[in-house]
Each structure stands twice: as structure tokens, then as C-alpha cells.
Amino acid sequence: MIDGFLALYIFMLAAFTGYEIIARVPVILHTPLMSGSNFVHGIVLVGAMVALGHAVGPVEIAIGVVAVLLAAGNVAGGYVVTERMLEMFKSSKAPAGEKKP
């Protein structure tokens, strides 16, 4: 059980962690990183599963299914988009550098 100040400490430390991770990021990675963090909050799927798992009655189940559906979309879409963006980052060892004699 997490309560009161313990929760506050978790909130605070996690917030600092997030801030520090982003603080020194080159601009070139801003979009992939936004997309990456978009994927990470896809953890909401776990919460949606818990909510649906304990849902009783048609209304709760319907909303729970919507939650799981949306969250699953967040997870999969966030991953694919981020992966596709990052796939493209490579350094220039092979191409272009050679000059004509």
C-alpha cells in the first residue's frame, strides 16, 4: 500500500528523473523522444486491464473494454512509430564521404 507522503516522494523522485533524462537531449532526438515517452505512458494498459479485470456489470465492462482498447492502441502505435523513427538514425561511415580524385 502506498499512501500519503510515500506517494508524494515517489511522485517527486519520478518527476525529477523525467526532467533529468530530457534535460540534455540534442534537438535531433526531440521528436523520437516525445514519441518514446508517448509509448512509455502506454503502461496505462496495465491499469486498464486491472480496471476491466474487476469490472462488474455491462456499464463498467463496456468502459473497461474501451479503456483496454485505447491503451493497447497507445502501446502498439507508440512502439511502432518510435521504432520507425529511431531505425533511421545511422552515422555517415559508409556514404557520401568519398571525394573524386
Binding site: Y19, I21, I22, M34
Partner: peptide, 21 residues
């Protein structure tokens, strides 16, 4: 609300990182 630590930490990290971004 769900007492789920993974959600709290991941959500908060994204919240802070997103705010800075």
C-alpha cells in the same frame, strides 16, 4: 488510485519529461 507503482512512476516520468519538452 489503482495502487499500481509502475503506472505512477512511468506516468510521472513522462509527465515531467513532457513538460520540459
Amino acid at each position: 488510485v489503482l495502487q499500481n507503482e509502475a503506472m505512477i512512476i512511468a506516468g510521472m516520468v513522462v509527465g515531467a519529461a513532457g513538460t520540459l519538452l
